[in-house]
Amino acid sequence: MSWSAISILLLFISALLLRSGVAQEASTTAPSAGRAIGTVTAINGNIISVKTDAGPNAAVTVSDSTRIVKTAPGQRDLKEATPIQLQDLQVGDRVLARGRPGDEAGSVTATSLIVMKQSDVANRQQRDVQEWQRRGAGGIVRELDAASGGITISPTPTQTIAVHTSGATVFLRYPPDSVKFSDAKKSSFSEIRIGDQLRARGNRSGDGQSLNADAVISGTFRNIAGTVNSIDTSAGTITVMDLIRKKSAIIRVTPETQMRKIPPEVAQRIAMFLKRPAAAGSAEQASSPPPQGGGQQMRAGGGSRGPGGGPDFQQIIRRMPAASLPDLQQGDAVMIVTTDAPADQQVIALTLLSGVEPILTAAPTQASAANLLSGWSMGSDAEGGNQ
C-alpha cells in the first residue's frame, strides 16, 4: 500500500474514533461573580465543591434558605423542576449555583441551586448518542462555502455529502488535546478548516447526499501510521517511525488515550477485504470470529453492515479488546490519532490501534479502500464509546 493511501485510510479511521466521544450536547459557561456551573466533586457539610465548566474550582455555600430544585437535562425552564434537599446531592451531579460572591475568591453563597442528577445526565447522554447515530453523517471536510454555509464532507474517498448549515445550527469544536465530546466548545463556521474531521446531525435527503444540519462538531488532529521503535513506560511515551512523514515521532500515552488491539484473525480479514475489487466487496462475505464472544461478523450482505452494504467496521473496532501501554512491543504496527503540534514536538495520543500490520501492508485500490471505509466512516449507524 502506498503511504498516501495509508494517509487516506488513517483519516477515515480517525473519523471513526472521534465518534466515540459524541455523547451529549455540551455547553461551557464561564464563571461569573455569584454564579457557578459544573460538576460536584465533594460535599462537606453545607459546602459543595464544584469543578466548573470553565476550569476553576468553586466552593458553593448552601444555607437553610437556599432553594434547591432538580430538573431533567435538556429542560429549558423550571416548570417541571422538583424541590430536593441538600442531602439528596451526590458527587458527580451537575449543578448551577446562583447567589452572591462569597468571602473567598471563587466562592458563591447560593440563594438557588439547580441540580441535574448524574444518572439523569447519563441517560440523556445515551439518548444523544442514539440521536447522533440516527441522524448523523460525517467525514473529512473537503470544501467550505462561507457565503452559503455549505460544507462538503467525504465519508469515504469516493463519496461526498453536502452539509447545509444555517443561523440556527449549533457549532462545536474539539479542543486540540481531546476527542471527548464533553470537552467540545461552542464554535462557529469560520473555525472549520479543510481536512478537519467533522460530524453533522440533522435531516438527510432521501438520497442521502445532503443534510440540513442542526448541529456540527469538528476538530483538527494528526494521524500517524508506523512501527514502534521504543517504549518508555515510566514516562508514558512511545517513539514511532511515522511512515507518512518518514520521521520519528514521540507520542505520550495518557489515561485518557483510547487504546484498542485488533486480534490477528480480525486484522487479516480486514486486510482481505481491502484487497478485493470494489464489485466483489459488495457481494462477497468476510465472516470474522466474534470479538470477545460478541457474535460480530464482517460481511457485506447482512449482520454487521454499514451504509451502502459494506461491513460495519465501527461495530467491530469498538468491540476490540482494550489495550494498555505495557501491551505494546518494539516493532508493533500502530495507527494513532494524536493532538496536532509543530514539527518535532511531542504529541498526545488520543486514540491508538495496535495489531494493524496486515491492514497497513494490504494493497487496495482506492475503490476497495472506499468499500472498507464506507463502514468506518462517521456517517454509519454504528456508535459506541471507548470510555
Rank of each mutant, 00 (worst) to 15 (best):
V22Y: 10
N57E: 07
S154P: 02
S304V: 08
Q87F: 00
F181D: 08
D196V: 04
A36V: 06
G138T: 00
T41L: 14
T254R: 12
A367D: 09
V115R: 01
D103R: 12
P311K: 05
A23Y: 01
I244T: 06
G139W: 00
D327Q: 07
I251F: 09
P364A: 00
S304F: 04
N229I: 02
Q90I: 06
V337T: 04
A146R: 09
P289W: 15
G331N: 11
S354A: 10
N229F: 11
S288P: 07
A168F: 13
Q387E: 10
M1F: 05
V179L: 10
L89S: 08
R35A: 07
G92W: 14
I359Q: 00
L18C: 08
I316A: 11
N44F: 06
R76N: 06
T66D: 01
A341W: 11
P175W: 08
R134E: 03
E383A: 03
L360F: 01
V179F: 10
R98Y: 12
T152N: 09
G21E: 01
S230P: 08
S248M: 07
G309L: 04
S234Q: 13
L360E: 08
A42N: 09
A249G: 03
G195W: 06
Q75N: 10
P56G: 14
T152H: 01
A300N: 15
A283R: 05
A5K: 11
S380M: 01
G34C: 04
N212V: 11
T29P: 06
F171G: 04
D77S: 03
V115D: 03
